[in-house]
Design a protein around this nucleic acid. Structure first.
Length: 421
RNA sequence: GGAGAGGUGGCUGAGCGGUUGAAAGCGACGGUCUUGAAAAUCGUUGUGGGGGCAACCCCACCGUGAGUUCGAAUCUCACCCUCUCCGCCA
């Protein structure tokens, strides 16, 4: 959420910045609401002040046994008047907040301008796509051939966009999860295992709601949302809290299943593990001081890259352009891993700095040593990494001509074997 | 699911419907004392919003929302959450 005062005082800059995203800021609507809000607020406060003053006067007269009839007469109906003013005020405030909640974050100045993903900028590349003496297979062919991924049974059990992992496939999934968590905790992240059903407030705090309801699984009675990423519960750990400056930075890492409707992606990645309704992911989340957040984004991205490097998977880092930026993000790097089966780089991690956008929504603040008042923290998060897609990358990059798959060095202690055959 | 208890400031914990934004204690910060520290002692110590060049003034907030009242932390109702016991259960 943007700061309404900041928006009010910098309308043109805000509009220009959001235009870079292709977002048309409803300037007139906002300013009209804001003006109305201030007017109602002053009127309400004035009347409340009158009520307080006179009520106190009545109290004193009653104690002194003097006649308070004139004051009581004056106060007749004042409460009603205040009530209706308050109602109007709240309606305007709700409307303003509702509007602000649907406005995306302002892209950071370092974000390249662009319309869509075709205008993202490659920042760096690591590793060389391997050469095969044969036509490399898709991971679903590898997986089915090895009997470690079963899509047919999954569709019987649940439906499309689900998978059953079996034997070495299931173990590989678990090995990746453990490997990633241990790598992240070694980098100073505290391990978290959060709820994966959350309430509306949490979804609003990180920005999924109110705008992206259609992308979420929801259960009713009682109402809960299934998390689309661990970012949601983990960031909301500190919702409505004031942290001490000395607590910062806070680093968390969490493994969770993630659930996404994938509405509107019919026909995209229909085969294989790339796009599932349920997938596993290890996430990293940071709470930092505002002046540190961009340096922290670089470190966060490096932490995610480290995992790919240790697995020996070729990848590239892409800076998302303004038009491709997620709703809540001020700046995002995507990590794209090389997939020989598809002969292209595919997203495997997304590392973002949200600055104070989520912190304002979720009311996560901190207090500086010896300074009055509070400030919003900056929040960041990044996948470290999407486990299913990493498994895909391992299968495709380490496949052998004989159909077997070599286990990367770093995973062998977890797998207890060198090869899936 | 059944029965009961409770939700007040960073924490503990008071609070006859009328200077209670809220006693007291702890903690924290500052001063005095001390070679230094401790102890002692004095003082300060919530958040958000509106106004003012400023000193400062005003409004709101005692789980949430309604209600009663000139006036609610205090009374009424609903809801939420936490805890205890019973039942059920991975």
């Amino acid at each position: 959420m943007l700061d309404s005062r900041f928006v009010r005082e910098n309308v043109e800059e805000v509009r220009a910045a959001l235009k870079k995203r292709g977002y048309d800021f409803p300037l007139q609507e906002f300013l009209a609401l804001d003006e109305k809000r201030i007017r109602l607020l002053r009127e309400t406060e004035e009347l409340r002040n009158r009520r307080n003053v006179v009520s106190e006067e009545i109290g004193r007269k009653k104690r002194e046994k003097t006649d308070a009839a004139p004051e009581l007469e004056e106060m007749k109906g004042v409460s009603e008047k205040i009530k209706s003013l308050e109602e109007g005020l709240r309606a305007v405030e709700d409307e303003t907040k509702g509007l602000l909640l649907t406005i995306p974050n302002i892209p950071h100045e370092s974000v390249p301008s662009g319309r869509d993903e075709t205008e993202n900028i490659e920042v760096r590349k690591w590793g060389e796509p391997g050469t095969f003496g044969f036509e490399p297979l898709n991971h679903w062919d590898i997986g089915e051939r090895l009997g470690i991924i079963d899509f047919d049974r999954a569709s019987k059990i649940a439906g499309a966009r689900f998978a059953v992992m079996k034997g070495a496939g299931a173990k590989l999934e678990r090995s990746l999860m453990n490997f990633m968590l241990e790598n992240n905790t070694a980098n100073g992240y505290t391990e978290i295992f959060p709820p994966i059903l959350v309430n509306r407030e949490s979804m609003t705090g990180t920005g999924q709601l109110p705008k992206f309801e259609a992308e979420l699984f929801r259960i009713t009675d009682p109402e809960f949302y299934l998390i689309p990423t661990a970012e949601v519960p983990v960031t909301n750990i500190h919702r409505d809290e004031i942290l001490k400056e000395t607590d910062l930075p806070v680093y968390y890492t969490a493994y969770t299943p993630c659930f996404r409707r994938e509405a509107g992606s019919y026909g995209k990645d229909t085969r294989g593990l790339i796009r599932q309704h349920q997938f596993n992911k290890v996430e990293m989340v940071k709470f930092v001081r505002p002046e540190d957040s961009f340096e922290e984004l670089e470190k966060l991205t490096a932490n995610a890259e480290e995992i790919l490097q240790k697995l020996g998977l070729p990848y590239r880092v892409v800076a998302l352009c303004s038009g491709d930026l997620g709703f809540s993000s001020a700046k995002t790097y995507d990590l794209e891993v090389w997939l020989p089966g598809q002969n292209k780089y595919r997203e495997i991690s997304s590392c973002s700095n949200f600055m104070d956008f989520q912190a304002r929504r979720a009311n996560i603040r901190f207090k500086r040593e010896g300074k009055k008042g509070t400030e919003f923290v900056h929040t960041l998060n990044g996948s470290g990494l999407a486990i299913g897609r990493t498994l895909v990358a391992v299968l495709e990059n380490y496949q052998q001509q004989d159909g077997s798959v070599i286990i990367p060095e770093a995973l062998r202690p977890y797998m207890g074997s060198e090869r899936i055959a």
